[in-house]
């Protein structure tokens, strides 16, 4: 931390102490500021990932499907479907079902 940053942090702490309405920075805000927040690429990546996961969840809610079936139904590239589906599998949102020809089918994991 350079002198200017130290002065700024000190000033913020003083103003917070003198005026209870000025909230002290939360640690997550400090981290965000230090790293300049989310990059535009990261914002786009996260937005697109959220959209894909939602599409996959909706398609799987209508029944178990293979990767090519999911890709067709969601209008996604099979490789993108595969990667996101396997991410959902890893974190317990999706489970593998039976083998259908050359592909395994996957379904949403039931939440008890």
């Amino acid at each position: 931390m350079n002198d200017a940053q130290i002065n700024q942090t000190t000033a913020e702490s003083l103003s917070a102490a003198q005026n209870p309405k000025v909230r002290e920075k939360r640690p997550i805000d400090i981290l965000r500021e230090r790293h300049g927040g989310m990059s535009p690429e990261m914002k786009e990546y996260y937005k697109e990932q959220t959209r894909i996961k939602q599409l996959l969840k909706e398609a799987l809610a209508r029944g178990a499907k293979t990767v090519p079936e999911l890709a067709r139904e969601c209008g996604l590239e099979p490789s993108v479907t595969m990667w996101n589906l396997m991410a959902m599998r890893r974190y317990g949102k999706v489970v593998e079902e039976e083998l259908r020809g050359e592909y395994y089918a996957y379904r949403l994991k039931e939440v008890k």
Binding site: T66, V67, P68, A71, P78, S79, T81, M82, W83, L85, M86, R89, R90, E96, L99, E102, Y103, Y104
Partner: peptide
């Protein structure tokens, strides 16, 4: 990552 050997492009065995 896939729990078994599958093709990365489309999950084919």
């Amino acid at each position: 990552p896939f729990g078994r050997p599958l093709r990365p492009s489309d999950g084919k065995v």
